[in-house]
Write a protein that binds this DNA or RNA. Structure first.
Lengths: 138, 138
DNA sequence: CTACGAAGTAACTAAAATGGTTACAACGGT
DNA sequence: ACCGTTGTAACCATTTTAGTTACTTCGTAG
């Protein structure tokens, strides 16, 4: 990898804006605050919509949260923007040599550890709510 | 992102082989167990060497661990193969609009959370040693 | 009902990371 | 001196990312 996509941080930024200024939150306005192209925002808004986090109003413009800010965690956002394939942060090399004791077992042994490590990260993300973040924007 | 590079799992596989079969661990042998190209292994071995985890013998061939298997954690390996740029798992979008209260504070507020989340993952990786993995290859 | 601003989306691009591959130089012991 | 091995450089196809242009669809105000 290199790093986790900025889609995640942009999504958090976007949701924060919607929570703070429920009005004027058009794609262009958000793009102006994030400092990127409006299409990038619309794509991310589409993911947030599909995840049931926001309601976007086509035609009229703007968006609103579908959940209370203290019911939206960073983990919800993380998952919404699909940062990893099939929710697997780690990737394991495929088709090791099964005639080798290490090759035969590496996948299963590692999977346990990596799942736990990923879980630790996600649990930490789940502890922070959008409401907590918004409090610090004042 | 998509996912964390298989360099990590291949590195763990490689170190396990060296620990289990201190002899015959040439790049070609390891590549045969991992099922990839020998150059891929040599590149990863170079990173493990630079991290002070292994000693590779040019000319004669083979490698050996420079630390006891119970002194090598998954975090050591994770860091050795440079999976993320500057050890930052998350990336935050740059140059948000500082005239917006959200844009002005998003970076600092998020950085705290993401650092903690990354730290949770790393602490979990640090809890597993190579020795523990090897025990399960028997 | 028309116009206009906004969302939805397809298509294209440049840049970067990944994993594999070929090729060749350097090393070291038989 | 030979031969297997390591150390690298160079190249490639594939994929992801983020940005951009362009066009359609939507919904309300005039």
């Amino acid at each position: 990898m290199k790093q986790i996509s900025t889609r995640f941080s942009i999504a958090v930024h976007t949701l924060s804006l919607i929570a703070v200024s429920p009005n004027d939150c058009t794609g262009d306005y958000i793009a102006g605050s994030v400092n990127t192209n409006p299409v990038v925002i619309r794509r991310i808004m589409g993911m947030l919509k599909k995840a049931g986090l926001v309601d976007v109003r086509p035609g009229v413009g703007g968006a609103s949260l579908l959940k209370d800010p203290n019911q939206i965690t960073l983990l919800d956002v993380y998952r919404a923007v699909n940062v990893t394939e099939e929710n697997q942060l780690f990737r394991i090399h495929e088709n090791p040599n099964i005639r080798c004791p290490v090759g035969r077992n590496i996948e299963q042994v590692l999977q346990t550890e990596l799942r736990d490590a990923q879980s630790a990260l996600e649990q930490r993300l789940a502890q922070t709510t959008l409401a907590q973040l918004i409090d610090r924007f004042k």
